Simulated scan of single mutants.
Amino acid sequence: MYLKRYKWIFLVVAMLIFFGVAFVQIHYQKKLERYQLEVFKIIVQRSVDLVSSGYFQWTELKEAIEKNDEEFIEEAFEEIKSLDPYIKEIKILNQPPDFEEEYYRVESDGERLWALFKIYDSMGEEMIADRTAYVEWNVAGILNSIGASVEFRKGGKKTFWGLEYRSKFGNKWFAVSFWSSLGGFSIILIIHSIFVRSILKFHYETEGLERMIKIIDKKDHYTALHSEYTSRIAVLLGKKLGLNKKELKELGIAGRLHDRTPTTQAIPLQGDSKWLL
Rank of each mutant, 00 (worst) to 15 (best):
Y104I: 01
Q36T: 09
F169N: 01
A22H: 08
T263Q: 13
L93D: 11
L200W: 10
V176Y: 15
E100K: 11
F160H: 03
F195H: 15
S108E: 07
S227P: 03
V44G: 05
K154P: 00
F72T: 15
L16D: 04
D69G: 12
H203R: 07
K219P: 01
E164F: 07
Y103S: 07
M15T: 11
K81E: 10
G156E: 01
K219W: 04
I87Q: 02
H192G: 10
Y2A: 09
S149R: 05
A129N: 11
E71N: 11
V12Q: 00
V106I: 11
E63N: 13
Q57M: 08
L236G: 05
K172H: 09
K154D: 00
L225V: 15
E33D: 07
R153S: 11
V51E: 07
Q270G: 06
G208K: 04
M1K: 04
L50E: 03
S181N: 11
Q95V: 00
Y35M: 05
E79S: 12
K158R: 05
D84C: 06
I188N: 09
E74P: 04
F19V: 14
L143I: 12
I128P: 14
I190F: 13
S52I: 00
D220A: 09
N144Q: 13
S108H: 04
K249V: 05
F40S: 06
E247N: 03
K158M: 05
